[in-house]
Write a protein that binds this DNA or RNA. Structure first.
Lengths: 335, 335
DNA sequence: CACACTATTGCAAACGTTTGCATTAAGTTC
DNA sequence: GAACTTAATGCAAACGTTTGCAATAGTGTG
């Protein structure tokens, strides 16, 4: 069996120094002679020594952990399945690691009501990144007021007293819509949920371009839940009741776009000839679907880095503010 | 600003008892009078008190944390993007929480060479769940030998001295292939990587059914990386060079199946009339694609629960063994 | 050589829990 | 009422780090 866990004191004894010296040596403290430092570090490596993180955290009052809180819808402790959100988490993970922090994956189920108490007082993490457009506004506000280091992935334009990082959704909506018009659409349809913070901005972008082009009369809005299933159902229903009274779809997400596409294809509506479609997110499937999906790409990699950067800056006591990451149009076959 | 963090001793003072009593009360220790217990628990809630996890872990030598290690391919610190793996992680997360544990999301980049040292000695987690068919065999073995509580998501049939949970891939391959034959395929093609543990089992299942049906001559194997892009490219290449010399595809994953489907659709090969396709995993997209994809569903929810259950059993000192979760055929339009 | 300085190292306290053991209070038995 | 049991609580040590301060050794100066 693995011999008893080596603690710092043991390592120090092996090296013939005091624990203090060993501790400092491992942390590359210049107080310790270069030579001694290296010797101890080598020794540590040789013996597969690792510091007890619990002890270290207790002493330092810092965890070197960032919690990522995935905002589940309501209290239905369902798992997330939106591939885009998972991608965001994955990119945050990378950024967190690159900064030498660890990632505690959590959700509103674990964290309960009092996020500040749970994460910060509980010394589980030094700060929190909230992912997911949730109904948890109240809890976020409370945690933020309590002084919890916090960054949210969402719509940066939202008025809030905490830092938000997200795409320029308004611009995204504009670009997508303008692209549809450039391709000749006369009767565009917005498919999504305008009440929602981020999606609402996209809708505003849509409306703005429509108004500029003087197409307000011909444009439509189809309010749906943001799932591919809902998109599929509602497009189906609409085709049955109204017929094909649109020639372009600006979808609030790729999953929604794909759901809509499926409904159209089933009814032999040609894409992009009869209807052009633009999605949002650029998930992996956008490229694989047929026809491949034109979409607004969100730079999740950059976003992950920004989120972490800003959180760390907060921890360092700096003043930080919300910011946007660029979006870009990825033109494929569906338009 | 939030008043100074309340510690257990403070709470005790407020309640007029000793720290020991307070501690026991919060842990519902029957040594303490019921009435006192309730009083203190209420007080704790009132003051939003939470225990310092770092201190608690130090004292208990337990973390109540489970690490999930995502096996990145090689050292290319790339993020994961396979939606299926992310789904697995998400379901593990749920199961972990349900058991009152927290989830540390990690990867080979953070954990370095010596997993035992990093997670266990380092008191970062009590046990580890490894996700993802990786090349990290050596590290897994080493950690397992060192006595690290460990469960792996993979192919349960693999000979190993650690516990593996996964689908019955052999059966999955058989069911998928049989389904193709039932639908009338005469010239089936397996699309995937037979060297790979899990995928290899699926291929064996494929081969088994083929042999039984006496179709060994007509069947083919197309070895590819397990990405939709590789599938798309290789099917394209094959169509160009060999023409359409197959009438069914047994794909090793849904992403691969979708990539293949795209290539076929682009060349106006009719699905399922000319070629029938069966995928593996049942990711969200399988239902949304057009035609929707027949596939072998892996029960990730059940798998997540099993993984966690077995890990906790190990922690409790029980003897546990590998096991399989059921698979099921989800029949859709592509066949 | 005494002095002041600097470069290294060690001592010991503190971080906030949990728990074995001792203690007290209350109840029971003869 | 003494002796004994049981119920409830408190004392103090321990978990393994990190770090302010003290101490020592080494170096150069007048």
């Amino acid at each position: 069996m693995p011999q008893k866990k080596l603690k710092l004191a043991d390592l120090a004894k092996l090296a013939g120094v005091s624990t203090s010296t060993a501790s400092r040596a491992l942390n590359d403290n210049p107080l310790i002679k270069q030579e001694t430092r290296e010797r101890i570090q080598q020794l540590a490596k040789m013996h597969n020594f690792s510091l007890n993180a619990a002890a270290s955290r207790l002493r330092l009052q810092k965890t070197k952990v960032i919690a990522v809180l995935i905002n589940l819808d309501a209290e239905t402790e369902q798992s997330i399945d939106d591939p885009f959100l998972l991608k965001v988490v994955s990119d945050i993970n990378l950024a967190v690691n690159r900064q030498g922090y660890e990632l505690l994956l959590s959700n509103s189920y674990m964290a309960g009501e009092d996020w500040y108490g749970y994460f910060i007082d509980g010394r589980r993490a030094d700060g929190v990144i909230v992912v997911g457009q949730g109904k948890q506004q109240a809890r976020i506000d409370r945690a933020s007021e309590a002084g919890m280091p916090l960054v949210v992935w969402g719509d940066p334009k939202t008025e809030a007293d905490y830092v938000i990082v997200g795409s320029d959704n308004f611009l995204g909506g504009k670009v997508a819509t303008q692209h549809l018009l450039d391709k000749g659409c006369k009767k565009p349809l917005f498919l999504g949920e305008p009440e929602h913070a981020e999606l609402g901005e996209r809708y505003k972008g849509f409306s703005y371009v429509i108004a500029q082009a003087g197409l307000a009369e011909q444009a439509q809005l189809l309010k749906i839940d943001i799932t591919s299933q809902a998109a599929y159902d509602s497009i189906n229903r609409k085709l049955r009741s109204d017929g094909l009274d649109f020639d372009g779809i600006c979808a609030c997400s790729d999953m929604v776009a794909l759901g809509a596409m499926k409904a159209l294809k089933e009814r032999y509506v040609s894409i992009p000839n009869d209807v052009r479609i633009v999605g949002f997110d650029d998930i992996a499937m956008a490229d694989v679907s047929f026809p491949s999906l034109t979409t607004i790409k969100q730079d999740t990699k950059k976003a992950g880095e920004l989120l972490v950067e800003k959180l760390l800056a907060q921890l360092a006591g700096e003043e930080v503010s919300s910011s946007q990451v660029a979006i870009s149009l990825v033109e494929r076959q569906s338009s």
